[in-house]
Design a protein around this nucleic acid. Structure first.
Lengths: 228, 228
DNA sequence: CGCCTCGGATTGTTGAACAATCGCCGAAAA
DNA sequence: TTTTCGGCGATTGTTCAACAATCCGAGGCG
C-alpha cells in the first residue's frame, strides 16, 4: 500500500469531525495508522499533504503532531518537519528500563488479584502461536503486559505503559522482525500468571524481570545484526 | 563565535521568543508561574488576555496549553477554556498510587548506588527545618523524592515523577497547607538514605512505601477537614 | 576539491475571520 | 414567587492567507 493510497483513504475517513475534537481526532487517526505499520518508521509527515488529505488546516494538524510527539510516536525536528519515529538502540534500552520497573512493581505490590484478563491473554497467545499468526501473538503479548501494569490501578502508569508498548510496535516495524520472536515467551507469561495466582508475587516479579532482560538483549542483538 | 552571534543571543534572551520555540517558551513561563503559586489553582487562563500579555498569538498560546494540559498542570474544559488545575481527592490518590510504585521500585532495583544527591537533599531539609522555612523544606523534600526516582536512570520515569511532584505543588497551593507538614518526614528520608547506603534496599523500599501511605492519609484528611 | 552564496521548499508564527458552544439574563408560564 | 425556555453576548474551536525563519541542495568561485 503506497502513501498515496493511505492519503486517499484518510480523505474518505473524515466525516465524524466535530467542534472541539478535530485535533484529537486527527491524532488518533494517525496513531492507528502508525501502529498498524501503514505509515512506516522514518516516513515524513508533510503538513501540507496530510492537512489536505485529512481536510484540516495546518494549525489543527500541528496540534495533533504535538500530542503524538509527546508520546514519542513521532519525532519532531525543528524547521525540518515531523517523521514517524524510528526507535534507536538507546530508545530500546529506555523502553526496557521503564518496563523493568513498572511490570515487576505491579506484580509485586498490586492490590488487585483478578488475573482473569491475564489468563485470557495467555490463551490468545497460545491460540495465535498454534495458528502461526505473528501479529496475533504480538497483540496478545502486548495485551498481557498492558494487563500486568493495569493491575496497579493507576491511570498514569497504564497510560505510560501503553505509550511504551506503542513504541515497541515501532521497534518491530523498524527492523525485519523475527517471525518467532514472541513464541518462546508465551510460556514465561503463563508461568507468571500461575505464580501470581498462587500468591507468589515476589517470584512472579523476579521472573518478569528476567524475561524483560532476555527480551531486551535479544532485541538489541537483532538490531545490531539487522543493521542500523 | 563571532560578535554577531553574541549580539543575536543577547537579543534572543532578552526578548525570549525564538523561531521554533515560542510555544514551549510560553509553556515554561506559565509552568513557572503556576509552580510558584502566582497563578492560583482554579484561575481561568483567558486566551485573549494571556496572549496579549505575553505577546503571542492565540494559536501559539493554545500550543502551550496543550503541553500543560498533558502534564495535568492545567485543566481544559471544551468550549469553556483552560484553568489552573485544582487537584481533587481522587487526584491525590492517583498521585500517591504512582509514587507508591515508582519510588520503592527505584530504591529496590536501581543499579545506581551514588546516594550523595540524596544526602544533600536531606541536609537541606534539616537546614530548612532549623530555619523554619516552609518552602525550603518543601523544595528539599521534592528534590529528595525526585532524586530517588532518578536513581532508576530512566528519562521517562524521571519526567513522570517531576510531573507528579508539580501536581503535588498544586495540591499544597490548593489547600491551606499545614506549615509543619514536611517536618516529621525529614528523618524518614534520612533513614531511607541510611538503609540504602548500607545496601538494605528492600528495607529502604518498605520504609518508603510506609512513608507514602502515611503522607497520603494525612493529606486526604487535611483536604477533607479543610473543605473542598 | 572545498567553501560559500543563493534560491526554493518547508516549517514556525501571526492576525483576522468565521463557526460552534456555553452561561447568563430576561420573558413567559405555572 | 418560582421555574422553564429561548435568545444574546462572550469565549473557544478552526480555518485561512500571509510573512518570517530556517534548512537543503545546486551551482559559482577560488
Amino acid at each position: 500500500m503506497t502513501l498515496e493510497d493511505i492519503l486517499a483513504e484518510l480523505r474518505l475517513q473524515r466525516e465524524g469531525a466535530r467542534h472541539a475534537e478535530t485535533g484529537m481526532w486527527v491524532a488518533s487517526v494517525l496513531r492507528e495508522r502508525i501502529a498498524a505499520g501503514q505509515l512506516a518508521p522514518g516516513s515524513k509527515l508533510s503538513e501540507e499533504a496530510l492537512g489536505e488529505a485529512l481536510g484540516v488546516s495546518r494549525n489543527t494538524l500541528r496540534e495533533a503532531f504535538s500530542a503524538l510527539a509527546a508520546e514519542h510516536v513521532v519525532t519532531r525536528i525543528p524547521n525540518r518537519g515531523v517523521y514517524v519515529a524510528r526507535p534507536s538502540a538507546d530508545d530500546i534500552r529506555e523502553i526496557y528500563r521503564v518496563r523493568r520497573y513498572l511490570e515487576p512493581a505491579a506484580l509485586a505490590w498490586s492490590p488487585a488479584t483478578d488475573v482473569t484478563p491475564l489468563r485470557l491473554a495467555v490463551e490468545r497467545s497460545r491460540a495465535a502461536r498454534e495458528a502461526g499468526s505473528v501479529t496475533g501473538m504480538a497483540d496478545a503479548n502486548q495485551a498481557f503486559h498492558a494487563g500486568v501494569v493495569e493491575l496497579a490501578g493507576s491511570e498514569r502508569l497504564t497510560l505510560l505503559m501503553k505509550q511504551v508498548l506503542a513504541e515497541m510496535r515501532l521497534v518491530f516495524h523498524s527492523m525485519a522482525a523475527d517471525p518467532v520472536f514472541h513464541a518462546p515467551y508465551v510460556e514465561d507469561n503463563a508461568r507468571i500468571v500461575e505464580l501470581l495466582g498462587a500468591g507468589q508475587r515476589a517470584e512472579a516479579a523476579e521472573l518478569m524481570a528476567d524475561y524483560l532482560r532476555r527480551a531486551e538483549a535479544q532485541l538489541l542483538a537483532a538490531m545490531a545484526g539487522n543493521g542500523a
